[in-house]
Nucleic acid binder design. Sequence first.
RNA 1: GGCCCGUUCGUCUAAGGGUUAGGACACCACCCUUUCACGGUGGUGAUACGGGUUCGAAUCCCGUACGGGCUACCA
Length: 505
Amino acid sequence: MDKKVRVRFAPSPTGGLHLGGVRTVLFNYLFAKHHGGDFILRIEDTDQSRFVEGAEDYIFETLDWCGLQPDESPRHGGPYSPYRQSERKEIYRQYAEQLVKDGFAYYAFDTTEELDAKRKEVSNFQYNHHHRSGLKNSVSLSEKETEKLLNENTPHVIRIKMPDNEEIKFTDMIRSEVSFHSSQVDDKVLLKADGMPTYHLAVVVDDYLMKITHAFRGEEWLPSVPVHILLWKYLFGLENMPLWAHFPLILKPDGNGKLSKRDGDRLGFPVFAMNWADPRRNELTQGFREKGFLPEAFINMLAMLGWNDGTDQEIFTKEELIEKFSMERVHKGGAKFDYEKAKWYNHEWIKRFEVPSFKFQVKKIFEENNISVADDKKLDKVIMLVKDRCTLLTDFVQQASFFFKTPETIDIAALQPKWDEKKSQFFIELIRAYELMQFWQHDDLEKEFKEMAAAHQIKPGDVLFAFRIMLVGGKFGPGVFDIASIIGKEETVLRIKNTLQLMHP
RNA sequence: GGCCCGUUCGUCUAAGGGUUAGGACACCACCCUUUCACGGUGGUGAUACGGGUUCGAAUCCCGUACGGGCUACCA
């Protein structure tokens, strides 16, 4: 194939981009880049009734965060603009009329009420060759009658005329050969009464006009493939049709069925890439970004949900994914989303990352939690020290805030049971000794501490635990001497004193 | 209901006719350890079912079951 690979994605601005949507973008992007091609983004905004304010911005922001920038889009420009389907309205009408003229489509004047009535009357009603002649359209009506209705500006749609006996086959890159029978498919609406195309018409016309070579989308689209194939055959020729692939669905973790926003709320995990505030319902759905995920981990996790390279490798950079991606290795079956595994990916990425590559994000999270981070070098040290124990970026707050401010609460309850006068004495003398220290280094602190313990005939472990509680407030965190050396002499002494006071009010 | 797609440990998956059916998450045990983690070692755990084809089937074919998707002037 010497034609340049051009892959497209066409989201509709009707809500936040959920996991399935982002994964579709990802696979589109990876395939395009793997073949040195272009990733094209169109906006499928032909249904104005469902249009949601801000949704288009949200799509671009998500793509930006994930690092999946399109080569062509309404925002990035490109040789085939406009890329918003509402702005291409007139183009679709021409092709729809062309189809009518060629006898592959027809005008239908039935009102919604009439169709509803028909559906009640006939069980399993379909607008197809069985019922076509009994309805109000340019097939059943005479040419004169049709013309009259048209001239009177009677509201009408254009429907495809499905052949009644034709085998429609195509090769899906993931599922190999799939076949349908035309008699099973109804006469789908191509052009709506408002003059807007439906997805079926728009996708075919735009794919042709924009010279798309590969068309990938979710499995839920598989049943409408025959409509698209026929449209290609009637309009542009099957030989020009892009190659198709239909991705497996992402399923709910419990039970079965497509993963939905509700599942996230119910089970307590995000299903959108970023926070999505729905202006219509006035509700906010938390996103992976705000939950503390790294974009690198997010796309890594998504890529592994339905694809692998055949080896045991699980952690991939975006560059590695591009290099190794192949459509043949995409799994056929749907995958249940597992939040625990998603967090594992993030943990792995945090552990592997060098401090500079995510320092800014951690700093931002600290600031959002009213922890001011003035000393940059200190921040580096702290991140280095605690990153292995953080699964989410937001865990840094819990794991490291005590480096930057005195703990607000001290877990006295953990201290009390084993507390005695001997220990009080130990710490009082430790304060004295520490105050006299000239250098404030990890090893010296530890040495002094242990010698002091020996002098008091206390096992170091017994007081080490107490020291930890004093410094961090609870039973967690890295090595105590690491902590003491970073927070400094004054702060260390202060925290010991504070706790002693609490123990002996 | 009709059409289409799918089905390997609880979950994500590897194995393209010959493997003790492999790995990862989760879980359990042990080790490491001043706490909590990290880490290390090991363990429990799967080819939906029934028929073929074949010397040999998770793998190919048929049927059944189960699950899912679609069945709008939504995408």
